[in-house]
Design a binder for these strands. Sequence first.
DNA 1: CGGTTTATTGATTGACTAGTCAATAAACCA
DNA 2: TGGTTTATTGACTAGTCAATCAATAAACCG
Lengths: 199, 199
Amino acid sequence: MPRLGMEPIRKAALVEATITEIGRAGSLDVTVAQIARRAGVSSALAHHYFGSKEQMFLAAMRHILGLYGAEVRGALALAEGPRDRLRAVIRASFAASSFRRETIGAWLNFYVLAQTVPDVKRLLRVYQHRICSNLRAPLRVLAPERAEALAEGLAAMIDGVYLREVLGQRPPDGAQAAAMVLDYLDVQLAARPNSGGAA
Amino acid sequence: MPRLGMEPIRKAALVEATITEIGRAGSLDVTVAQIARRAGVSSALAHHYFGSKEQMFLAAMRHILGLYGAEVRGALALAEGPRDRLRAVIRASFAASSFRRETIGAWLNFYVLAQTVPDVKRLLRVYQHRICSNLRAPLRVLAPERAEALAEGLAAMIDGVYLREVLGQRPPDGAQAAAMVLDYLDVQLAARPNSGGAA
DNA sequence: CGGTTTATTGATTGACTAGTCAATAAACCA
DNA sequence: TGGTTTATTGACTAGTCAATCAATAAACCG
């Protein structure tokens, strides 16, 4: 009994299911049948809407990055002044919507996928570029000379914290993770407040 | 024409080939046949010596971590004083023997594998614990109150730099990577030289 | 009401691959 | 010398899975 206008609903369900399955399995070795089952449809339908497994992965990744981007934009909208903006970006990176076991697991696997699938690589580069930009802009105000280096350091640290979360036995603690990066930021800014000349 | 005593030679070749193939493919989706071919033997022989693909992966990982451990030990042996020891550990993390495209690619994939294979997870935990210890010990001398937090921050940053290297278009530059982490360290230590109380 | 589009699936196919096995042969041993 | 161990492989098996297809059926359209 097919109702019309199912496409967006099914696609959304399949994207969610893809992330969940990858996160649970901790691997890209999930079958289309598994994903489809979780989404409550047949594997044939999944192929019908996405064309291939790779396209499903890509859509899932776009979804994750989209959520993250929304989180950042939302936080930035409320922030005033460069320091606040930096904090906003960092906190958004560990907000509950992104910093969950399944999402982290999926995210790590997309890094792996980027080595094989050019489209995924491009997508991930866009994300990296955007986060660096978001950090660099306020840093240019606070520490112009070191803005570039600090932005890269912060970005690396955020990625590193994510990565280490994958192995953690404890469930991820976004607040604590954010605190570590925020502390790094504070100390760096306190060090050479408004000028630079890093090695 | 089989000569005796081939086992260690074949095993070493297969381990090398495993790392190379995973690094090149950027994925764990490499066939035993591929690995064996690169090692110059049949896939049957690979199974003969390792029993299963999983054991090959595990051996490859032990090899990578072993190389890294040796690098750290070597650097530590030459270091004098806590500050020097810290620098040694960080530099060793980006030494040429470990910081190569293929090794980095393989290393990332082992993080993924850890989510599935308990033995790999255990191995990776041992590595993380060891690097944290190596950092903590000298930090306890230089900044006792913050030693724990700083060690975790440094470790996260090291992992993060590795991770970002995976996507990089340029070939990995260990010196520059090390410089970034060393700078982080210097600033943190300069900030509150011999006491603490981080938020 | 027919005809078209949309939704949906069971069944099938075609390709791939981990792991097994029996066979071959050189080297060592008693 | 003849038996055992070690090295090595080609061929095979059994299982998996992405992708396709033909078929069913509801909804919409003129």
